[in-house]
Design a protein around this nucleic acid. Structure first.
Ligand SMILES: Cc1cn([C@H]2C[C@H](O)[C@@H](COP(=O)(O)OP(=O)(O)OP(=O)(O)O)O2)c(=O)[nH]c1=O
Length: 330
DNA sequence: ATGTGAG
DNA sequence: ACTCACATA
């Protein structure tokens, strides 16, 4: 989707702890730029989210893997006062709120937001007055800030899918992936996967301009309205269904015909599901990406790709229980 | 090459 | 977890 945080909005016995820990994690990533503290808070939230019983003291929490002295203390404070002084301070900090706003525009990350704030640019209005400080991606993010905040109804994605297919040469196969393929009623963006039987891993140069041709065709029919980035295999941009529609984020990924199943698996996600499954693959002695599943020995050098004839093949090869797309949300 | 951003 | 595209150096 456009740009949103990923809070694990669950109703576990310790979900309130998880909530403030992930908020602290976001603060460390976006404001302090401390990736290690960010990971520490994430890990602590993760163990707590899967802990089956209510934690009643910092001391009890410390027994869990990933919770040390400092986080245990915060749990005690939260237990005793119902809040965290550090979080209160963060909420009242103008620099933090500015960075949290600016990083909502696509193309602006923590680093760019930091320099903008240090230059006194803290609002969308400020950005409008200083467009010279933005690159192409960030300009589009600003222009469509409000559009990209809106979720896309499933039915609109269906219509866009049909429109795209109608403007593709019949040999090109199209699959809409992402949260749409996972059955969600609304999505943050549209993830389109395309293949062509003459574009394969052995002859990748043939049809090398296939993606560019597709993009220009979709521009000419009026669907694609903006290009954020465009390489040989990945397009990022924006589209709109018709004149009065909301502008939507559209990603297109071109994949070799013979590697379609690894590609749909990757592009369907979710992101956390992919990380989980790829970690499991490593445990089973394989490395998995959007192209191939390969054995990786003690040498660390991946071997020859396994033959894959379905999504399920990939699960079977690494001994991971098969999940339908709608069950791959985490 | 490396950092950044996004995926 | 693992990759793509861009903007710098
Ligand atoms: C962000 C991200 C995505 N992906 C993959 C899995 C995602 O399903 C796929 C598309 O990414 P997204 O479009 O960012 O996510 P989504 O489609 O699952 O959810 P929504 O659009 O509704 O917000 O790319 C990763 O493998 N790693 C990542 O870090």
């Amino acid at each position: 989707m456009g740009k949103r945080k990923a809070p694990s909005r669950e109703n576990t016995p310790n979900s309130d702890f998880c909530e403030f820990l992930t908020e602290l994690a976001e603060y460390e990533k976006n404001v302090s730029r401390n990736i290690h503290k960010y990971n520490a808070y994430r890990k602590a939230a993760s163990v707590l989210s899967s802990h089956p019983t209510r934690i009643t003291s910092g001391q009890e929490a410390k027994k869990l893997n990933g919770i040390g002295e400092k986080i245990a203390k915060k749990i005690d404070e939260f237990l005793q006062t119902g809040k965290l002084q550090k979080l209160d301070n963060i909420h009242n900090d103008s620099k933090t709120t500015a960075i949290n706003l600016l990083t909502q525009v696509t193309g602006i990350g923590p680093a760019k937001a930091q320099t903008l704030v240090s230059e006194g640019i803290t609002s969308l209005e400020d950005l409008e007055k200083h467009k010279d400080k933005l690159n192409h991606h960030q300009l589009i993010g600003l222009k469509y800030y409000h559009d990209f905040q809106q979720k896309i109804p499933r039915n609109e994605i269906k219509q866009i899918e049909n429109l795209i297919r109608g403007h593709l040469e019949p040999q090109i196969h199209l699959t809409i992936c992402g949260s749409y393929r996972r059955g969600k009623q609304q999505s943050g963006d549209i993830d389109a996967l395309i293949t062509h039987p003459n574009y394969t891993s052995s002859q990748p140069k043939k049809k090398q301009n296939l993606l560019k041709n597709v993009v220009t065709a979709l521009q000419n029919c009026g669907l694609i309205t903006e290009i954020i980035s465009l390489g040989d295999t990945k397009f990022m941009g924006a589209c709109k269904l018709d004149k009065n529609s909301i502008t939507r984020r559209l990603d297109i990924r071109l994949t070799p015909f013979d590697q379609y199943f690894c590609a749909v698996l990757y592009f369907t996600g979710s992101d956390m599901f992919n990380k989980q499954m790829r970690a499991h693959a490593l445990d089973a002695g394989f490395t998995l990406n959007e192209y191939t599943l390969r054995p990786v020995g003690s040498t660390g050098v991946p071997g020859e790709p396994l033959e894959i004839h379905s999504e399920r093949d990939i699960f079977d090869c690494i001994g991971f229980p098969y999940k339908e797309p709608q069950d791959r949300n985490q």
